[in-house]
Write a protein that binds this DNA or RNA. Structure first.
Lengths: 115, 115
DNA sequence: TATAATACGGACAAATTTATCCGTACTTGA
DNA sequence: TCAAGTACGGATAAATTTGTCCGTATTATA
């Protein structure tokens, strides 16, 4: 595991949000879980551009940050399932309204973001 | 300038939002400008933990992404001022509600984010 | 008995972001 | 004229995130 060298600062609430949601695939993961796609294998197939290794890392962070919970079923073959925690659920309206802003301004933004 | 090697993908609206707001100091910058702190020097003094060089870069991105506008006054000594664009203004309620979520859950989150 | 599916992790490389160190040009005030 | 203020930018180092390549173990199926 990578060890931070500079401490995280979270002066304002938006920093807290960013801290939790930053990560190339976290939005997709939260959204998938919210829509019932909960198992590691399913998630990997649903987000094929991300490698398993990275998804694993981001899932672990989401769990550590209290957004998702992880359940290990005691069956063979192995079964694992992620679910939104209460905190994770509380994020859904935020995600929705933020996504709405993005969609409303997509045309404008896409042109500008090209780079 | 750094040149991207992999294209940016913005499948959903939240990606658009993240693309625009990602950057260690962008939130602070937008918030400062919104609160009337608009000149480069002022901004640097207001956010002393960031180096000038980085603030400059992030300001430039915010301008490129259509969130801020930059005005060069034709006076000596030089005077420059940043302002929110219409698109930038439309971001304010989003930022507020997102920050609210963060503050409401600050206690919980701070414990979890420690790392 | 091989093949594919379930799930996980170490070590390291590549990409990206942030920070540091240098320098420019002009103007004001001591 | 010298120090400090305004503002900006190149080159490179350090920190961080993302991706690649290797490997583990177990079980079901052909």
């Amino acid at each position: 595991m990578y060890e931070r060298k500079t401490p995280v600062t979270v002066d304002c609430g938006l920093h807290l949000f960013m801290e939790v949601m930053n990560g190339k695939w976290k939005i997709n993961l939260v959204w998938c879980v919210y829509n019932g796609i909960k198992r590691p294998g399913e998630l990997q197939r649903k987000i094929p551009n991300a490698t398993r290794r990275v998804l694993e890392g981001q899932l672990k962070q989401l769990v550590n940050h209290g957004i998702l919970s992880k359940k290990n079923y005691d069956v063979k073959p192995l079964k694992v399932e992620y679910n939104l925690t209460e905190l994770g659920e509380s994020l859904i309206p935020i995600i929705k309204s933020t996504a709405k802003w993005g969609e409303e301004n997509r045309e404008k933004l896409e042109k500008l973001i090209v780079e």
